[in-house]
Design a binder for these strands. Structure first.
Lengths: 207, 207
DNA sequence: CCAAAACTACCGACTACTCAGTCAGTTGTC
DNA sequence: GACAACTGACTGAGTAGTCGGTAGTTTTGG
């Protein structure tokens, strides 16, 4: 369920709205939604707070638009590489991780920040974004599971591995390394990812 | 640097202070420090907000006391089992994970929540708790690294594994599964942990 | 073809409320 | 009676959101 928006919009309005969401993503990825005021976002986006609230009827509506953007970018970044990588999914993941340090301050940084910071803020089931985060998590699990399962059926992956549990493991690892790198950007993510990918590949491969 | 406290304290005062920290940990583990007001904590702890501020001169001081408590409990829970488990550290970790579901609403839940929620809130380097979180992360890494390295020297673990990178991997996995379980308590953490531990053990063991 | 009406995209001023923190006391205990 | 352990009333700085208005653009009807 994407965020409800005003019915009619001109090209100019759409542009402003995009600009606001851009700014909001950057702010929220660093300081969280609770740590970011509408005034902050409005000032950076070059509109008044009232102007912002014309485009998004409430902070929650803006938050949902921000999450829409995040999920779309996430999707594109992770799965835009082509169809069904099979067991090579661990290499793809590792390659993505290795690219983090060079993308500090970029869209990718915001992507990771959104995961860690917004998830932390919405752990409690009665928070605004919690249902959508759970849904997003489950969708990702399902996708990775499907990839692993078909690789298993093709004989690329050992039979005694449960694809769903393995998917959970891969995602947990990504998420954890992400969080660690965000709080301490000096850690060698590329090296860690490389060792992890190599070991995962040999361990999962059918003998 | 632990939180500075008032110089003199009676038994009663100490008891109240403990009660306040107890309540604060529970609240903050669910809603974060930014999502928890001093009034909330004070009410639940059975003192006025002014009374709370008598014991902790500011919210930040309380937060540091909360983090003290968290780190101490974390320490006890993770390393209280005895000296140097060697390669069995993965089993210990997995056993801990398997116990999560039965401890919902308990101190352990708060422990996990503190990790995920407070970390998310303090990703940005200019937040109050960020330096202490980085320090805590590095300490844990060092400890796990030391355990793995000595196991490697004893010949329990293959030589081509880098203990530090492996430690990062283990911690990242724990952290990620923790976060996933917090947002979605229906996921089978025990099964995931069991498969993970089994595979880690066979993969790490010297042949 | 053009003026009036309607609508989009804003803005400044304001409101109601929440929050951390202060101050000037009061109570209870060694 | 000194000091620790409080409390109620208050303050000032935010905060999300409302209201009434205006400039510019688009639509409509004669």
């Amino acid at each position: 369920m994407p965020a409800a928006q005003q019915p009619k919009t001109s090209a100019k309005g759409l542009e402003t709205r995009e600009r606001i969401v851009d700014v909001a993503v950057r702010f929220i990825a660093r300081n969280g939604a609770r740590g970011t005021s509408l005034a902050d976002i409005a000032a950076e986006a070059g509109v008044s707070q009232t102007g912002l609230l014309y485009h998004f009827r409430s902070k929650e509506a803006l938050l949902n638009a921000v999450l829409d953007r995040h999920l779309a970018f996430s999707e594109e970044w992770l799965w835009g590489d082509g169809p069904d990588p099979g067991i090579k999914i661990v290499d793809i993941v590792a390659r993505h991780m290795a690219s983090w340090p060079s993308q500090h301050d970029d869209k990718v940084y915001s992507l990771l920040g959104m995961n860690t910071v917004v998830l932390g803020e919405n752990v409690s089931p009665d928070t605004d974004l919690h249902p959508r985060l759970v849904e997003g998590y489950r969708t990702t699990i399902d996708r990775v599971t499907a990839t692993l399962r078909s690789a298993q059926q093709r004989g690329e992956i050992r039979d005694d591995i449960d694809p769903r549990l393995k998917a959970m493991e891969i995602i947990a690892y990504c998420y954890g390394l992400e969080a660690a790198w965000l709080v301490d950007p000096t850690i060698p993510v590329a090296d860690a990812a490389a060792q992890w990918a190599a070991q995962q590949t040999t361990q999962m491969a059918s003998s």
